[in-house]
Write a protein that binds this DNA or RNA. Sequence first.
RNA 1: GGCCAGGUGGCGGAGUGGCGACGCAGCGGACUGCAAAUCCGCGUACACGAGUUCGAUUCUCGUCCUGGCCUCCA
Length: 460
Amino acid sequence: MTLHLYNTATRRKEPFEPLQPGKVGMYVCGPTVYDYAHIGNARPVVVFDVLYRLLRRAYDEVTYVRNITDVEDKINAAARARGISIAEVTESTTRAYHEDMAALGALPPDEEPRATQHIAHMIAMIRRLIEGGHAYEAEGHVLFHVPSMADYGRLSGRNRDEQIAGARVDVAPYKRDPADFVLWKPSDADTPGWTSPWGRGRPGWHIECSAMAKAKLGVTFDIHGGGRDLIFPHHENEVAQSVCANGAPFARYWVHNGFLTVNGEKMSKSLGNFRTVRDVLVQAPGEAVRLMLLSTHYRQPLDWTDDGLQQARATMDRLYGALRHVWDASLRDAPSPSPELLAALEDDLNTPLALSVLHQEAARAHKVESEEEMRAVKSALLGAGELLGILSQDPAQWFRWQPAGAEVDEAEIMRMIEERNDAKKARDYAAADQIREALKAQGILLEDRPGGVTEWRRAG
RNA sequence: GGCCAGGUGGCGGAGUGGCGACGCAGCGGACUGCAAAUCCGCGUACACGAGUUCGAUUCUCGUCCUGGCCUCCA
């Protein structure tokens, strides 16, 4: 089985073959750093992190590029609103973003280009578009001329009539065509700007990704990812800019994750259902959040609920329980996922199916009869965990996770467990049960193991 | 209005032209002082209406519903 990916460009699942054997380049649209990342931002990060892990397993050289958009009007607005500098906004937000994504178990990308450091690339690209007759200057703006590209609309499946028919955009008077979009726009004295052949200004959003992808991966590369909502106009425009400026194909496989809703509705601040990654990390450990994002296939819509998060946490409890059971086995070789699990992931990242395989392996873990079997199951569990980005910690540590601000005194718990065990030995079960109930009230559950050992864990 | 996705059991969620994954919850049993964890067993579904077919949840058409995009929101 080889990796198959659903390619938005062809609307089909296709076998993946890199442009150059053994070498893969992947670009995923990263955040605009003006506010904390929300769970909708986290979905593509986690999805493409799994793809990244899978690719790294199969190919010698994988270059994963995820940009940071640090020039954007919303950043300027945030800086003004908070009374701090633009640099402070982008730096602190980027730092928080890194923390949040690490908490979700996402590996850092190989390259994380920042828009502000690629202005020259953007200017060069815009120049070539003008020279090629694909862009024009008007009133300090530079616009991409959509009719100059015959294929425009192919990725999103929109023809020109459809675009114009339902258009709700105000058409700026300087546009030659209503569909033309901005490559460069002028900045006033209070707005960040760079010197360009068209005066002091700043880039449009779409050109940033075209320029950074080219700078890091070359004109044609393998995979471009992002949320489905970016297909139009962002990705369509990237294709137009890159193909017209480079005279070469752009991304070969377009991979898009489905939209995330919260309680069935689009997440928005006005609806009051806005969840940042930080918010949910207080409710559950990072791996539970990650599992929640992976328990639905990436192309399906995902509805975020508190109940779903608790269920994801319960699933992680189950998996860690299985891992704990085989934890003492010493591995001779590196952890290795089972062929079934690998096959599920290679089939267009079927993470829900992969999880069902993992559940089977968890059941096996509780039934092992030999040291050899223990090793095999541990290896499969950890191997699966490496690919999915879960099961990365000691089970004991997992079961003791506590939400921030709810620290319990571990020494006190141990003391109470001892006290209960003494009561049990004295056959004073009423006293023993009372202690257990007292702990339960604090969210601590006890599990008596054979041999008189009592373990504790946090309640979900 | 145009375009694009999706509608599977109490819940989450795969998949398939014919033998009803997997998980959670529920029920029964084993284990346990009692629990928890674990193990064994059980039940319920494929939005609606046509069509194609020996046979459709799976293919086609239509209807309804939900979500997204068309506004530099992943």
